[in-house]
């Protein structure tokens, strides 16, 4: 996993609630056996009509909006556990998703792929949507080290929380699987006395 470094970017807003992982990447596009290339089908059925033509009213097809921060309504990533949703977002170029509420499995999947989910309050989310609506090019700063999401021009500064272990993993680009492999002896010892009924 790449190290997560401080960056600035404009943001793409999708002010819809309960965006499920079937919308992020529909099941019929989960047939790959690799982790790459899912970005092409990110939000497939919102982005394209059934003939494969771009839908003009969807935000990702609007050139006024760009950037590596996605801002969405509450309960983002609900539904299926498919990690393909996180892969699709990262492959498309997003590095941060901001919402007032994330589904649990999606949150874990995102963190395991260097995609940072930032949880803000409903009011803060509303303010962020307003800032982007006023100026689609408004720039936001993301500092994981300081756990801050801010927009200097609009005097917005939000402190966000993150699990300390996950923070370390992201900052150091640490792989959780390598970490568990390093614990194999300990796990083996546990297993030798653990009863499964």
């Amino acid at each position: 996993m790449k190290k997560f470094i401080t960056f600035s970017s404009s943001a793409v807003p999708i002010p819809m609630e309960d965006i499920d992982t079937d919308q992020i990447i529909p099941a019929r596009f989960l047939k790959s056996t690799s982790r790459d290339g899912f970005g092409a089908n990110l939000f497939r059925d919102w982005r394209y009509d059934q003939k494969g033509e771009q839908k003009a009213d969807f935000i990702l097809n609007n050139t006024d909006y760009s950037g590596s921060i996605l801002v969405c309504g509450k309960n983002f990533g609900c539904g299926s556990s498919r990690e393909h949703a996180a892969w699709a977002l990262a492959d498309y170029g997003f590095r941060v998703v901001v919402s007032s509420f994330f589904a649990d499995i999606f949150k874990n999947n995102a963190l395991n792929n260097g995609l940072l989910p930032i949880t803000v309050s409903d009011e803060q989310l509303h303010t962020i949507f307003e800032i982007i609506e006023k100026d689609p090019e408004a720039t936001f700063d993301v500092s994981l080290e300081d756990q801050k999401f801010s927009c200097a021009k609009e005097h917005l500064s939000i402190d966000f929380s993150i699990d300390p272990f996950k923070k370390t993993c992201l900052l150091e680009g640490m792989d959780t699987i390598d970490f568990l492999i390093s614990k194999r002896d300990l796990i083996q010892k546990f297993e030798s006395t653990h009863l499964v009924y």
Partner: peptide
């Protein structure tokens, strides 16, 4: 509980997952 593919790899590699108690 359901897990993502990185966690599937965790289990295959160590019969364990890293979790926060809900």
């Amino acid at each position: 509980f359901g897990i993502g593919t990185s966690e599937v790899e965790q289990v295959l590699a160590s019969q364990s997952v890293l979790q926060v108690k809900p």
